[in-house]
Nucleic acid binder design. Structure first.
Lengths: 336, 336
DNA sequence: GTGAAAGCGCTAACAG
DNA sequence: CTGTTAGCGCTTTCAC
C-alpha cells in the first residue's frame, strides 16, 4: 500500500509534484510526469479517496436511498444510477430502508457522515422531521420515481399513465372496467398508487363510465397479493364481472392474469388485462402495458446530481420522463 | 457542519476529551461526558467517517460486488448483506459489474481506493489477472452464491439441489425428463449452471434413466428466454415429449409453465415442472421448487466479514447453506 | 481526568 | 516547473 509520500521520496521529488502529475494537472514537465507515472505504476499506487476527500471535501461517491432492493423499479433505477456514476468514476453508497423498518430512524445520521457528495432518493416518502434533516444536509438531492415533496423529481406522470392505460380499454369498447390497485403492501411510496388511481377515476368519469366499487381490489403492488385479490374478486362477483382490469403495476397485472386463468377464464377473451411499468416479464405474459424506462430515469438523476456537483450554481431540475403504451395480447375488444 | 474541534473550543475542552467522550472511551468524568454529549446533540454534531477512517484505517464500509442488480438472487442477497451491515453501523458501497461489461476492467482500482474495509462478492467469476489483483487487496473477502475459486464461499450445494429436484420427479414416476438449463444468457456465473446440470445428469444416471439430448434446452436463466426455448421444444418434439421438466432456476420454470400453457397443454397433467431457487413469484405459479434463502446467505456473509474485521486472526470460512424442497401443484405423477 | 502534539494521505495556496 | 507549508477532521500516544 504505497502512498504519495512514498513514491515522492523514492523519486526525490515533492508530494505536490507527484500529486499534480498523477492527476494530470498542468505545471509539471513532460519528463517528470513520465517518470512519476511509471513509478506509480510500478509500485501499484492507488490514491486513497478518503484522504483526498478530506482535503477537497469531495468523496467521489453519492448515496442512493432505496425503500427496498426487492422490486423491479428500484433495482432497475439503481442500475441506471450506478452506470452513469461509474462512468464518472463515482461510487455508489447504498442506503436500503428495508421497507421503512427500524433502520429508518438512523438513516440521516449515516447520510450526514460526509461520506457522499450527493443523494438520490428512489420514491421514498418522509415525515416532517426527516425533511428538516434533509434541509441541513446541504448536498445535491434528487428524487426518482414516486413524488417526494420539496425535492426535484424525475419520473413519469403517474396520473397520465393511468389515464392512457384506461383510455386504451375504453377505446377497445370496454365499459365494465375493474381496478387492481390499492396501496403498496409494504408501505412503500403512496403517491404513486394514489396518482394512478386518480388517473383511472378521471378517465372513467370523463368517459361517463360507471365506477363499480365492488370491482376495485387491493393488489398491494405485488404479484402474489394481486393474484389472490383477483381470485377473490372473480369468486365474489360471479357472472357479473368486469370485462377488463386496469392493474396499477405490471407485477399486479401478471398476478391478475394468473388468477383469471386459474379461474378457468381466458385473457383477453373473457377479461382484458392492462398493466403499468414495463416489467421484464411482461412480454412473456403477453401483457399490454405502459412502458417506462426506469434505468434511464436513474441515469438521468445521476447526471443531474453530477452536474450540480460540477457547477454549484446549477439548480437541480426535475423532469417528467416518457412512457409508451405497448399493446400485446392481453387486451382486446370485449366479447359481445 | 460542526466539527469536533468546534465543539471542543465552545466547551473550552480539548479535542481528545471530546473525542473520547463521544465514543464512550474510558478516562473521562461522568460530568464532562454529559456536558459534551449535550453540546454535540445541540449542534447536531455528526462525526466524519472519512476523517476518522483516515486516522484509524477503518472506513466502516464494505463493498459488495454484484454482477447485476436485475436478478432475484443478487438483489435478495444484497438486501441481506445490507441488513446485517446496517445493524453494525457499516455502510455498503455497491460495485455493479453490469453483466461484466466494460466497467469490469476498472473494478479493482475502485475497490482499492481504500474506501471499504472488506468485500463481499456475489457469484462472479474472475480471470487470472483479477485474482492476482484480489490477492493484493489484503482485505477480508467472501463469496456468496456461485463458487468463486480461491475464496471462501457461502451458498447451497448446487449439485445436490439439482439431484434432489430430479429425484422428486423420479420418485413421482417420471422417466421422460427434460432439462431447461444452459448457461446464463448474460454471461453471469457459469459454475452454478454447470453444477446444477451435473446434479441432473448424476441423478438420472444413478436411476438408470435415459438422458434425451433433444429434451435439453437453453433457458439462459431468464424467464423470457426459457419460455421461448420450451415453446420451441414442444413444437419440435410433438407427441414425443417429456412428461417432466427440470428447470435450473425458478425464473426459467415460470417461463416453462407459460410456454406449456400457451401450447395448450396443462401443468402438471401433461408436463410436470420443477424449479430451483425459491423466487417470490414461485408460489403464485404453484411451482414446486427447492427453496434457498438468499437473504440469509447475504447476512451470513456480512457477519463473517465483520467478524474478520474485529479479530484479524479470524480466518473466513465458507459454508454450505440449506435449501428445502417445497412441493406445490406443478408436479405430479405422469399420466398413464 | 485532561491536554498537547503528532500523524493518517492527500490537496492547495504560496513561494521560489 | 517544483518545493514548502498548511491544513482537512479525527484518533492516539504521551505527558501533566
Amino acid at each position: 500500500m504505497s502512498t504519495l509520500a512514498q513514491i515522492a521520496r523514492d523519486l526525490g521529488l515533492s508530494k505536490s509534484t507527484v500529486s499534480r502529475a498523477l492527476r494530470g494537472k498542468p505545471g509539471v514537465s513532460e519528463a517528470t510526469v513520465q517518470t512519476i507515472r511509471e513509478a506509480a505504476e510500478r509500485v501499484g499506487y492507488i490514491p486513497s479517496v478518503t484522504a483526498a476527500g478530506l482535503s477537497t471535501g469531495r468523496n467521489e461517491a453519492i448515496g442512493v436511498l432505496v425503500p427496498s432492493t426487492n422490486r423491479w423499479f428500484y433495482t432497475t433505477a439503481l442500475s441506471g444510477v450506478d452506470r452513469a456514476l461509474a462512468a464518472s468514476g463515482y461510487d455508489v453508497v447504498l442506503f436500503d430502508l428495508h421497507y421503512a423498518s427500524g433502520s429508518r430512524r438512523m438513516f440521516h445520521k449515516k447520510l450526514l457522515r460526509r461520506r457522499v457528495d450527493g443523494l438520490i432518493v428512489l420514491s421514498t416518502e418522509f415525515d416532517e422531521i426527516e425533511y428538516a434533516q434533509f434541509a441541513t444536509v446541504g448536498m445535491p438531492l434528487i428524487a426518482v420515481g414516486g413524488t417526494v415533496r420539496r425535492m426535484p423529481r424525475i419520473g413519469i406522470d403517474d396520473v397520465e399513465v393511468a389515464r392512457i392505460a384506461t383510455r386504451h380499454l375504453l377505446e377497445l369498447g370496454h365499459t365494465r372496467i375493474g381496478l387492481v390497485g390499492g396501496l403498496d403492501a409494504d408501505g412503500l411510496n403512496q403517491v404513486v398508487p394514489i396518482k394512478r388511481t386518480d388517473g383511472w377515476t378521471l378517465e372513467l368519469r370523463g368517459a361517463g363510465v360507471c365506477i363499480r366499487e365492488d370491482w376495485m381490489v387491493e393488489g398491494g403492488f405485488r404479484l402474489p397479493i394481486a393474484k389472490q385479490a383477483v381470485a377473490e374478486l372473480l369468486d365474489r362477483v360471479g357472472e357479473d364481472r368486469p370485462t377488463a382490469l386496469l392493474c396499477l403495476s405490471d407485477e399486479m397485472a401478471m398476478g391478475a392474469i394468473l388468477a383469471i386463468r386459474d379461474a378457468g377464464l381466458r385473457v383477453p377473451d373473457d377479461i382484458s388485462v392492462i398493466g403499468i411499468d414495463g416489467h421484464p416479464f411482461a412480454e412473456a405474459f403477453g401483457l399490454t402495458t405502459c412502458v417506462q424506462d426506469a434505468e434511464a430515469q436513474g441515469s438521468l438523476a445521476a447526471q443531474t446530481v453530477l452536474a450540480q456537483l460540477q457547477d454549484t450554481t446549477h439548480r437541480a431540475v426535475g423532469r417528467i420522463t416518457p412512457f409508451e403504451l405497448t399493446v400485446r395480447s392481453s387486451t382486446s375488444a370485449p366479447a359481445v
